[in-house]
Design a protein around this nucleic acid. Sequence first.
DNA 1: CGTCTTCGTTCATTATATTGGAAAAAAGTC
DNA 2: GACTTTTTTCCAATATAATGAACGAAGACG
Lengths: 210, 210
Amino acid sequence: MNEDETMAGHSADGAGQPPETLTRHLGRRVRHLRSARDWSLETLARISGVSRSMLSQIERERANPTLAVTLRIARAFGMTLGELLESPGSASRLVVIRADDRTYHYRSDRNARIRTLSPLNLEKDVEFYEVQLPPGGALRSAPHFAGTREFVTVQRGRVRVESGGDSEILHTGDSASYRADVPHALVNVGHGQALLFLVDIYCQSPVSGV
Amino acid sequence: MNEDETMAGHSADGAGQPPETLTRHLGRRVRHLRSARDWSLETLARISGVSRSMLSQIERERANPTLAVTLRIARAFGMTLGELLESPGSASRLVVIRADDRTYHYRSDRNARIRTLSPLNLEKDVEFYEVQLPPGGALRSAPHFAGTREFVTVQRGRVRVESGGDSEILHTGDSASYRADVPHALVNVGHGQALLFLVDIYCQSPVSGV
DNA sequence: CGTCTTCGTTCATTATATTGGAAAAAAGTC
DNA sequence: GACTTTTTTCCAATATAATGAACGAAGACG
């Protein structure tokens, strides 16, 4: 969620990485996946149709393969290209965030109180927040990088949700999804404190296969 | 969220595609993104550092670029490799789900009551649910495809969250994130009704930049 | 131990990606 | 329309991806 400067540190970073890191990641990943299956380079070569040499080079981070070669490798592991190139789910263990853990109180001013419900150490593809808006309080956001969406649900109160030119009033129990790659806002238009749960989604849904 | 048979239709599809389709998709996408910005091949070439010739070939589906070249193009558009290779986000507009809309009441039995908070017509990369568990009620799930994670927050009550071999008790206001690609469960261990908000994440997080 | 097999790396060759400049096509201006 | 400019495509040259065969190391076996 990239709401305002107060949250700058939490925004997804759309900046890339040097190609070296990409091939480094790929190399490590292929090596790991292959080991996990107890396959030799020869076995993977046969299954994937990519030469042992190339696989060896990839694993030693000496290669910059074409998309087609990369896809063949992905398929050999029963994965899409996206799955191969992305991080494995981190060894995500059960991580608990306690109600009183101040680390996750992200913002508390006269406009809004926001508490992060998702761990700070996860990559920022999806974020989860509890948002409390006092009467008249608002959470306004600049557009975010392309494809970003939000889900919100109103647990208490009455809130206007705005996205691009659209807006709607949400009552308690109502939910909404909307684009967050355009200016957007949540405004408490009721008389009491509003309580919202907000999901920010930065990742794109996969193309079939990639 | 793919919890039980009652939700079988909601899982993400990981199937692949032939290389020709990959380069076809890429070609069309690059052409479209470039047009949308009103950039010439020369402009994109300058920004990306990939030759005009290569870009032209890519757009005409004549090229099988390396990962490094593809990444450079993605960056020129301010995207990660994953974003370039994946479908554009659907034309997500503001969509509201009302508290009393029965369409989104997903399950209501003696173990759990679940209401979907995200629209049913979105691709199933992230789903958002309200879950009510009566005392002793439980929501048990089989493992899900690799990389699936969940976030949960307890709005009321006391709940045990289990994932793989781990488990923790969550009190009101507590949150957790955990792997959902292993057997997992949410169990109401308190004396009253528990109210949870649950986020299911099917998409893989991008490698930084990919 | 010696011999054989498997495995990963090296190396030279082949195949193909990528480029820069020229040519052709398209667009813009008068 | 003629002319100029811009854009895209073509083409040959260069760079690099990808290969198959050889090599060296490690492991298995008698």
